[in-house]
Amino acid sequence: MEFQFDHEREQRTGVPEAVFCTHKSAAQIDAILAAARVGGHRLLLTRLDAGRHAALTATAGLDYDPLSGTAILGAQSLLSREGIGIVAAGTSDMPVAREAARTLAFSGWQAPVIADVGVAGLWRLTSRLDDIRRWKVVIAVAGMEGALFSVVAGLVAAPVIAVPTSVGYGVAAGGTTALHAALASCAPGVVVVNIDNGFGAATAAIKMLNAAGRQDIPSSRA
């Protein structure tokens, strides 16, 4: 067998295992799905492009979202948890924002997405500040020069998880410029995940709020 499920990952780490589909063949993904169905397990699949999805032989019960390249096998979670929200600089950043939103939904988090609030039209962002300031964690998704990260972090009390995207011309360098902007931000409270990593941002946000809600963290005082 070419794969092993880590069914205890959520219990151990607070976030469930996901299947990263890049470089996996359709046959390998079919085998993973078949094993999950036999065991009655839910699965989140990421980076499942439309061509590979079309090549799968059994898609029954698979909720596929082509924009984000994610698929969910099994029952949808009740979206009973709140506190995480997503802002996307432009419509071109929506595939990554949707990956984050779908990852959160898989774990039962209702995460609103406010799109097209890049700094070129700053009024679009400021008009939504009352909504954004209600969130406990903000996931900010942007390419180009990545200015959105510092602007948002300078306006809200919540931590900001910056997700640089590969959107942009020339010297945007496939997201490297936005990544460097996030890492070099002068606004305190910005943490950064890798380029286009909406999944990583979502799981980081879940862990932040899970840790904040824990009652069993030992005190450092004697």
Rank of each mutant, 00 (worst) to 15 (best):
S80P: 04
L56G: 07
T165W: 00
R52F: 08
D30T: 11
E8V: 14
V138D: 01
A71C: 10
L79C: 08
G90D: 02
P112D: 07
A26V: 10
L44S: 04
R42W: 06
R37V: 03
T126R: 01
A222K: 14
W109D: 02
S92E: 13
E145Y: 06
A31Q: 11
F5Y: 14
V113W: 05
A181Y: 03
G146L: 00
K24S: 11
G74H: 06
I132P: 03
F5R: 04
T176D: 03
V163L: 03
V113S: 11
V163F: 12
W135Q: 11
G83Y: 12
K207W: 01
V87S: 01
I29W: 04
E8P: 01
V141M: 00
V96H: 06
A187C: 05
P159V: 10
R12F: 08
Q11F: 09
A31N: 10
D116F: 03
A204W: 13
L78Q: 14
G154F: 08
L48R: 04
F3D: 07
G168L: 02
N197M: 03
A18G: 06
E17R: 13
E10L: 12
D30R: 08
A222W: 09
R52M: 12
S220A: 12
E145C: 03
G51V: 10
W135V: 01
A202L: 03
V156C: 12
A88W: 01
E2G: 05
V138K: 03
L78A: 12
A50H: 13
S92V: 12
L56F: 14
L122G: 07
G51A: 12
R133L: 10
K136N: 14
A157S: 14
E2Q: 07
F149P: 00
T126L: 13
I86H: 02
V113H: 02
S220K: 11
D93N: 12
G200R: 05
E10N: 05
A36W: 07
A75C: 07
S185L: 05
P188Q: 04
A205N: 06
G83L: 06
E2W: 05
K207V: 07
A54I: 02
S25L: 07
E99Y: 11
N210F: 04
A36N: 13
I217M: 10
V15K: 02
I195N: 00
V191C: 15
G85F: 02
R47N: 08
A50W: 04
G121Q: 06
M144P: 00
T126M: 08
D30N: 11
E8Y: 13
A142N: 03
P66T: 04
L79K: 07
L79H: 06
I139F: 09
P164G: 02
G108Y: 10
A101E: 13
V171A: 15
W123N: 12
V163M: 03
